[in-house]
Amino acid sequence: MDTDHDGVRASLAAWAVGALEPGERRTVPRHLAGCDACAAEAERFTELVRLLDGPAVPPRRDGRGNPDDTAVDAADTAVADDTAAVADRAGDHADGVLAAALGLRPRTPPVAPHAAPYAAAVAGLRALLPELAGRWTVPVVHTWTAHATLAHLLAADEPLAAVLGIAPRVPAPHGNGRKGAGQGGGEGAGAAGWADAWNARTADVIAHELARTPEQTVAAWAAQADALLAAPEARDTGRAAAPATLMGMRLPVAEHYLVRAFEVWIHTDDLGRALGLAVPPPPEEHLWTLVRLAVRILGGALGPASPPVLFTVARSAGGEAGDQWVLGAEDKPVRAELVVDAVDFCLLVGGRYPPDAIPRTAVGDETAARHVLATAASLAWL
């Protein structure tokens, strides 16, 4: 019997929506057939999917998801058939609430790899929104309620939408002289003034949306997200290579889609925490795309004058060592070695960890290591 409980449990959410990787389609059912603890946890995942996704996920015949415990090959075939039937809805491999979300997401035009993390993050938030019914005033982050947090995301997507020619969902307040569609965060704001313009715009959008119903805000946010995913730049890598300056960062449009994915996930996690629900990180492939972009931005923020630090972002699953970079001066000996988990690093960059509280391993010059963490934390906004 396969006794790799941690490995199997990491795959149970994907199993519940029929999105196992090919190599897992044999090992996971075999393990569940002989492990009561994992089988019980698998059944809990299945029930969560049923609650979020209605009858679309077929009920299992028993807690192990194996209709014939005596015929492993037949069971594997059944699981593979189930996977094929559900995979059209399930999409990318993910965990927990996000995995259930993938079955709920509406059909959208196919997107290129650079927009896939944003599409998955939007799907995850869509799945969580029904849990907010009757709880839209729950405090979430900063001084925002759940309603205000979603309004913030409506505002946060505006700068990219404006660059792509998508009309604003919220007009600028009459007579205040500010541009709509979040353009205060765009190229016209200048490197120094974007933050003030952005803060003002997000406050305007939140005030506007709090005067409406949460359902109206959900509709506006969803329509704007759908428009971003339907834009030619979401499907055409050539068009997405064009640079744009948004939120003080000049990046290709493709990478601005990644920034949007990052923020939607962070705020979905905020909402989940407020509701007492665990929201999983992005699928592994998407997570590492976000990590690498964040490290590159961090390296630019540190600059060549910073003491060099060997920075390792460790993988959360699979026992792999992770990726390494030397940040800071390239022509000097490394002063410190710093290791952080991939999800923790993203939460740090997203402003959800103080730099002195993030779990990490450091050797060498502690001041140099702390400088890297403090700079990473400084990249966050709202």
Rank of each mutant, 00 (worst) to 15 (best):
V279C: 02
L228C: 01
L258A: 13
A274F: 04
A254M: 10
P232W: 02
P252E: 08
P243S: 03
R273M: 06
R273G: 15
V264H: 14
V259T: 14
A223C: 01
D236R: 01
A274K: 06
A227L: 03
A240P: 14
A230G: 15
A261Y: 03
A231S: 15
A278S: 05
W265Q: 11
V259E: 10
R235Q: 11
H267C: 07
H256Q: 06
A244R: 11
V264G: 07
A227N: 09
M247F: 14
Y257A: 05
H267L: 09
R250H: 07
H267R: 07
T268E: 12
G238K: 00
E255I: 02
D226K: 01
A230L: 09
T245S: 10
M247G: 04
F262A: 13
P280T: 15
D226I: 00
V279P: 11
G272E: 03
Y257V: 04
E255S: 12
L277K: 13
A241Y: 05
T268L: 05
A223K: 11
D226L: 00
A244N: 10
P243A: 04
E233L: 02
R239V: 04
A231F: 08
A225C: 14
A278K: 11
A225K: 14
R239H: 12
V253C: 09
R260K: 11
H267S: 10
F262I: 10
P252D: 09
L246S: 11
A261L: 03
F262E: 15
E263K: 02
R260Q: 14
G238H: 00
P252I: 03
D236L: 02
F262H: 15
L246A: 12
A274N: 08
H267D: 12
T237F: 00
V253P: 02
V264M: 08
Y257H: 08
L275Q: 11
A225I: 07
L251E: 11
A223V: 04
A242M: 01
T245F: 02
E255K: 09
Y257R: 08
M247D: 10
E263N: 07
G276S: 13
P232Y: 02
A242W: 00
V279K: 12
L277C: 04
L228I: 00
Q224V: 06
M247E: 07
H256W: 07
A274G: 10
I266L: 15
M249K: 13
T268C: 07
L246Q: 13
P252S: 08
G238I: 00
H267Q: 06
D226Y: 00
A222S: 14
R250M: 04
